[in-house]
Design a protein around this nucleic acid. Sequence first.
DNA 1: AGATCGATATTGTTGAACAATCTTCGATAT
DNA 2: ATATCGAAGATTGTTCAACAATATCGATCT
Lengths: 225, 225
Amino acid sequence: MSTKIALGPDDQPLAEKVVSRIRDMLIDGELAPGQKLSEQQVASQFGISRNTLREVFRLLTSQGLLSHIPNRGVFVAAPNAASVIDIYRARRVIQIGAVRMASRGHPALLRMGILVAEAKEAQKSNDWRRVGTINMEFHRAMVELCDSPRLNAFFEMVLAELRLVFGQLDNSAHLHEPYIDMNSILVSLLEAEKISEGIEQLEIYLLRSERMVLAALQRTAEQKG
Amino acid sequence: MSTKIALGPDDQPLAEKVVSRIRDMLIDGELAPGQKLSEQQVASQFGISRNTLREVFRLLTSQGLLSHIPNRGVFVAAPNAASVIDIYRARRVIQIGAVRMASRGHPALLRMGILVAEAKEAQKSNDWRRVGTINMEFHRAMVELCDSPRLNAFFEMVLAELRLVFGQLDNSAHLHEPYIDMNSILVSLLEAEKISEGIEQLEIYLLRSERMVLAALQRTAEQKG
DNA sequence: AGATCGATATTGTTGAACAATCTTCGATAT
DNA sequence: ATATCGAAGATTGTTCAACAATATCGATCT
């Protein structure tokens, strides 16, 4: 059980690297929500000591990706409907606030435009995985309209948690396809400084996206009994 | 150097307790920004092992209260003007979003009303420390208008960081006095469902508060050379 | 004064150990 | 058969001691 995983060069602390590594695994859906992570097992899997792993777990727990129950252990966070609703509530506050600050020529707005173009490219080549990734980046860029590192970091956390849910979904289909056009429209509105209409468009997106995630979540919940 | 500090009953993990303890010390200004926290020294001060303390440090670092420089150590975060500006940027987004959701009879709005009354009481008895505490709680309550645990948690973090700055300021004077009336007006507006005017009032508050903190920060920076 | 180099202290990480707590599972009683 | 209880085993919580890697400091040299 000691299939020590390669961890790359040693410029940043070991714990940080393992944090990134596990976060990626969580986001890619390689670990099932609710699954228990045994200290001994995971430590040997990554070839690190329990003490170091505990630092890693503390970090990921504080970011909502793991959940820690004292004396019971650490588990992969299992977002439920309530979590999803809360996540979208937070998204509305942050992202509407961001759109409100949009101004022509803002680097983040330019980036949003580029990402829409890239999404259309990926759509043409039926690369749905890439469409999904680009969509995430699109919304990250949107929050960068605020020019606030703290808001960026928080939004990053929220998105990571949301991806925990996405990781469980059937990713094969056109999950993100309908959003390409919506994003495109939003960019046009913002470039024309039509803020209110932009907000409206964003709210349409968020509502639709929220419903989709909730429905998918319910489906997987039913599958598991 | 081993003045082991009392840590109370043992129902929650040791690390969590020390996290709270150190957070309180930071917020109360008992540790100077920029000050180095030696692992060995702090560990023996709290009567815990280095390994456990490292978990504590990781937590507090991820919350922005400490700053960790690999191979150099852990330091008390030293928010500068840029940090303060960013904090207020985040506050605007979150709190304006919160006020926008205010509705008559919302528990958080009721609580805001009660806190204003309590602040006026504290003002009468010249209890400025209490006025400051109540003001913090007032804004916490405001964010609770969103009904979002995640936004609450994030705002809590931001506020803690801000208090790091406040901890350094001369707390003797009427720092928070002018805000009592502004808070009172805001509650009245929201209870009358005058959202736009409420937002305006909040923006006035935030701008004034930001200027005050920035000015005070600059003063202490000058003092230290 | 400024650069160089080695001695010292601190951080990063590990492994082993033990107490406290949880889980499992069989024995017993109903 | 079901429920209860308790002991054995496993896991977490925490400490300690050690060592490598890195940073800090001071003395020395130019």
